[in-house]
């Protein structure tokens, strides 16, 4: 039985459901971007730790817009790392295998850590390449 069969529909708080908690995040992002430029230090905002309604998130997402790069990661469910219209500001969403959002961040970085290959993994890759070359 799906949840739709239960005749109760929870209406998200108020119309249009904006709590006013999203706009201050833009200021925080500005600070973080300035820090990235000044010191190269990456930072992130954990969206699931904040009292944001779906409408707040939509508002924020709408304001930040969409950038040129979208990265999709298939690892125990899909993750998307999308650059926003502000270069260096990434909207990161992690899903589990059932497709539910497990965590959501806005990352401020030149490249999110998750995208970079780890040296140890590169080493394993180089081993594999050596194997390929030796088979030539």
């Amino acid at each position: 039985m799906s949840l739709d069969a239960i005749p109760i529909h929870v209406v998200p708080p108020g119309e249009p459901g904006l709590t006013g908690n999203a706009p201050p995040l833009l200021r925080e992002l500005l600070e973080m971007v300035r820090r990235l430029l000044a010191t190269g230090e990456a930072s992130a905002i954990d969206l699931s730790a904040l009292p944001l309604t779906p409408a707040d998130l939509d508002w924020l997402r709408d304001k930040l817009g969409a950038g040129e790069i979208s990265v999709t990661l298939q690892a125990n469910g899909e993750s998307t790392l999308n650059e926003t219209a502000c270069p260096g500001v990434w909207w990161v969403m992690h899903h589990n295998e059932q497709g539910a959002v497990t965590s959501q961040f806005i990352e401020v970085a030149f490249v999110p850590d998750l995208v970079k290959a780890h040296p140890q993994d590169v080493e394993i890759g180089s081993g594999y390449l050596e194997l390929l070359v030796s088979d030539l």
Partner: peptide
């Protein structure tokens, strides 16, 4: 994979 693990840790930290 390492990225799966990193992703798990990010969620866990959250």
């Amino acid at each position: 994979t390492r990225r799966t693990f990193l992703k798990y840790c990010a969620t866990l930290a959250s």
